[in-house]
Structures are given as structure tokens and as C-alpha cells.
Amino acid sequence: MLVAAAVCPHPPLIVPELAGAAAAELDGLRAACAAAVESLLAVPHDELVVVGGGQTTRVYGGQAAGSLRPWGVEVKAGAGEPVLPLSLTIGRWLLRRDPDGFQEVAFDAPPGDCLDLGASLVRGPRVALLVLADGSACLTEKAPGYLDPAAQPYQEGLVRALAEADAAALAALDPAEAERLWTGGRAALQVLAGAADQPLTGTVLADTAPYGVGYVVATWT
């Protein structure tokens, strides 16, 4: 049973050592992520799983580590040889502790597979999920995917679904549209949708797009 979830973005620049002089621009986002994680950990749970997108779908043990060395800084999250993709590395960095496991989901995983995966993660009595998911990267002309007029209403729909803990809306996300709008978190959000096996209350702690990428922080409790 899913008892709580936190949704955070996973831009490398959220780590101050990587952001450098621009670190202050993301202070509010970091604070929101910290608050979301704190809220998540405050809910009594038996298992904590970190979910994030990557090149494939696979499971890592709770002591798995990640590194931001590919992004130019020697920042490591966790002990051991770094094996986690960026999303889970940022999740491990935000969590500041070992979870019970990490679940990578392929960015292009079909919705049905994501929903089934989410359902499989909450077979335990009390499961909490930390979900790493970026929104559309087409919100401004300087965004990685440039400006797409459809991106803003799409992003607003994501925010609304998270604010209302609307699993059905997340489950209905179209992979082709998500890809066109550079929505990196589509698969991870659909894993969350599949895990939502009871009504929860959503709260949005941050909704920003400092680099033309939609970054939303939310909790479901």
C-alpha cells in the first residue's frame, strides 16, 4: 500500500557544487525538495523506494551509489562504485540516507509497463516513494527543447495532477506528446500513478522553470 510519495526534479544544478555562482538561483527549489523529503520520511512506513528515469528498467539495492562526475564535479551520493543514473543519483543526494531500494524506469517505457511496475512496488504493507521527475523542457526560447506553445498548458496539467493527487491524469499521459515536449519524467510519474492504490492528498511545494524546464515539487500523503 502506498502511504506517501514525494515528487522532486533531478537537474544536476540542484547540487550547489555543480551550480557554482548560479547556486542561489535554485535555493528555493532545494528548500522545497528538502521539505518534501522531510514530509515523506515523517509518514510511518515499512519500505522506502526511490524511483527515477534512465536508459533501462532495472532495480538497484538500497546501498547503491551515484556520482555527478559526468557533469563535471566530484560529488558522490552513497558509498561504493557509482552505478545509479542521474535521476536516482539526485534522489540519493536529496535523501541523505540509504533507501530500501532504487527503481530505474526506462524513459521510453510504455504506460502499461509503468503502471504495472508501480503496482508491483507497493505490495508491502506501508510503502513510501521518492519519485524523481522533470517536466517539459520546452517552456521558453532558451529551454533545451526550445519554445513549444503546447508546453505551458501541458506543464500546467502536470502540476494540477500532482496538486490533486490525480493518478488517473498521470496514467493518461501520452508518451509521444511527452517526448515531443521533452518531458523527462513521464515514465516515473506513471510509475507513481500505478502505485497509487488508495486516495491521497496532494500538495505542491514548488512550481518553477528557471531554465525553461518545468520543475515541480509535490507530496502525496
Rank of each mutant, 00 (worst) to 15 (best):
L181I: 11
Y146I: 11
V83K: 15
G112V: 04
V59K: 14
V127E: 07
T208C: 11
E156C: 04
G145I: 09
Q63G: 15
A206Y: 04
G101N: 01
A42I: 07
L26C: 12
W182N: 07
L2H: 04
L29M: 15
T203K: 00
G78Y: 10
A34P: 01
R123C: 04
A161E: 05
G66N: 09
V73Q: 01
A167T: 02
L129I: 06
P110G: 07
V7Y: 06
P9H: 11
A119C: 12
L2R: 01
G212C: 02
T201P: 08
G212R: 14
S120G: 10
A79R: 15
S87Y: 07
A77N: 08
K142G: 09
A187H: 05
L200Q: 00
V50S: 08
P210D: 13
Y211S: 00
R160K: 12
V49M: 08
A206V: 10
A193S: 11
R126C: 06
G78I: 14
L129D: 03
G61A: 10
P144H: 03
L48F: 06
L26Y: 02
G194T: 13
A119N: 15
G184C: 08
P153W: 13
E177A: 11
V50P: 07
G202P: 03
A65Y: 12
A176F: 09
P70V: 09
L40D: 06
E25H: 09
E38H: 13
V131L: 10
A178G: 10
D116M: 14
E141Q: 13
L129P: 13
G124E: 03
V43D: 07
G194C: 15
H10Y: 12
C8G: 14
W71L: 03
G185P: 14
D116Y: 01
W71H: 14
E156D: 12
A195C: 07
G52F: 02
D174M: 07
P12C: 04
A165M: 10
T203M: 01
V73Y: 02
A151Q: 07
